[in-house]
């Protein structure tokens, strides 16, 4: 059982990074539907740099830059040029998929070099790893996952406990009021879109560098879209994003587990589960009308000072 739950943590990481990235982006009032494309770009650039240099830090840098630059294009178009956010996001996904497929053409099936494998090997954390039940699930994982925990912690504190986080909230709730109170709205939007994109890139890189340890065509396989849905499930809260990703990670490996236990169930039905669950979640979460569960009020409204 704890073997299954530990594997669910691994399976949840790509979605968790991307969900938190999208939360940060949406908090600034932008709905970026390019998550899938950003994850693919981060996944391939992380893999290529890691493979060519053998240096894990270069791999991570590559993923961050790919996600950051990809979302910068989105930011320029939607923030400065006020393009439609839905269409721009979809275009980013098309572009990202083409980019990853082109760059990754000669890397398909290649495995990450030993230096990276070693770097991303599991570490049994002292004390924490020995906690009964929880230890084997949470604290005998790879360093990328520990970094993921850190991202949850830091982004929670940042969003709820710092001045910048509160300013960001103001920008997302009402860009006009934030602007009037002296917050640099454009800067906040740009910065958080790029940070969000970089996190999506890291989510993709986790897949290629650690989870699969190799590059495959269309490696992300819809996880970016699930992340967009998980943002709603998580009601824009990083801790809930982690819980949601964990549930979905579990669902995504459930079929494999059931079959290995000898339970005969069609793979295709099991494959539907995460998507059906997403639908269930957005239906249920539309019912709770608590104020803190609502999306940022100014989400996907372009802000244009001259039109105030």
């Amino acid at each position: 059982m704890d073997g299954f739950l530990a594997a669910a943590i691994v399976a949840s990481m790509p979605m968790m990074f991307a969900t938190i990235g999208e939360i940060i982006t949406e908090k600034s009032g932008l709905l970026n539907l390019g998550v899938e494309g950003l994850m693919l770009m981060g996944g391939i650039m992380g893999f290529v740099l890691g493979y060519e240099t053998g240096n894990p830090w270069m791999a991570i840098l590559g993923a961050i830059l790919a996600g950051g630059v990809g979302s910068l294009v989105y930011a320029i178009l939607t923030i400065s040029l006020r393009a439609n956010q839905v269409v721009t996001g979809l275009t980013l996904t098309i572009f990202g998929a083409g980019f990853a497929s082109f760059v990754g053409k000669t890397y398909v099936g290649l495995v990450v070099p030993p230096a990276l494998k070693e770097f991303f090997a599991r570490i049994h954390l002292p004390i924490l790893g020995d906690i009964p039940f929880l230890g084997p699930i949470f604290f005998r994982q790879d360093p990328f996952i520990y970094f993921g925990y850190l991202v949850v912690l830091v982004s929670s504190i940042y969003l709820y406990r710092t001045r910048f986080g509160l300013n960001l909230k103001a920008v997302g709730e009402s860009a006009a009021s934030a602007d009037a109170s002296g917050i640099n709205v454009t800067l906040y939007k740009y910065l958080h879109t790029c940070i969000g994109g970089a996190l999506c890139g890291l989510g993709g890189a986790y897949m290629s560098l650690v989870m699969m340890s190799s590059w495959q065509e269309n490696i992300v396989a819809g996880r970016g879209w699930i992340a967009v849905a998980l943002v709603i499930f998580a009601s824009w809260n990083p801790v809930k994003a982690m819980i949601g990703s964990f549930l979905f990670g579990g669902l995504s490996i459930l079929g494999f587990r059931l079959q290995s236990m000898g339970i005969n169930i069609s793979q295709y039905w099991v494959d539907m589960l995460p998507y059906a669950a997403t639908i269930l979640i957005i239906i249920l979460s539309s019912r709770k009308n608590k104020k803190e569960n609502q999306p940022p009020a100014d989400l996907s409204n372009p802000y244009f000072r001259e039109e105030r």
Binding site: V73, L81, A83, T91, I94, F95, A97, F99, S101, F102
Partner: peptide, 17 residues
């Protein structure tokens, strides 16, 4: 084919802008 996808993406970005 991926090159065609990228070209498509680039053209779209410009038209959007």
């Amino acid at each position: 084919a991926s090159v065609a996808d990228m070209i498509q993406g680039i053209i779209l970005f410009f038209v959007l802008g």
